[in-house]
């Protein structure tokens, strides 16, 4: 096995995630795509950790941190989506233009 096969796979998953984030209108689906991107990052972290044979196992430890933070992010993200849905009866991101000038 070589490192790059994992890295390229991760890059592919990450790009698919980007596509999802950019193209999906439903906020829940956008969050799903973000999960894909985070998974790709985790693959990278673990692969690098393995490659470097780090005594601190930091690659895996950070993958664990990412998983934890991702769980928190999903919880908050879904709560926000639900809140928005309740206020606007829609969970479509393209109808949310509060950032507009």
């Amino acid at each position: 096995m070589i490192v790059n096969q994992f890295l390229v796979l991760a890059a592919l998953l990450f790009s698919i995630g980007i596509y999802g984030v950019l193209v999906r209108r439903n906020a829940v689906l956008v969050l799903l795509s973000i999960e894909l991107m985070l998974t790709a990052v985790n693959i990278n972290l673990v692969a690098f950790g393995q490659y470097l044979q780090d005594a601190l196992v930091s690659g895996q430890v950070f993958a664990l941190f990412v998983i934890t933070v991702a769980a928190a992010e999903v919880g908050i993200g879904l709560a926000i989506v639900i809140l928005i849905f309740r206020n606007r009866s829609s969970a479509n991101v393209d109808e949310l233009d509060l950032l507009k000038w």
Binding site: I18, V21, L22, V23, V30, V93, D94, L96, D97, L98, L99, K100, W101
Partner: peptide, 13 residues
């Protein structure tokens, strides 16, 4: 000013 559309996905892109 047209770049500040408020569309999150445009920003992400």
């Amino acid at each position: 000013r047209y770049t500040t559309s408020g569309r999150i996905q445009q920003y992400a892109g």
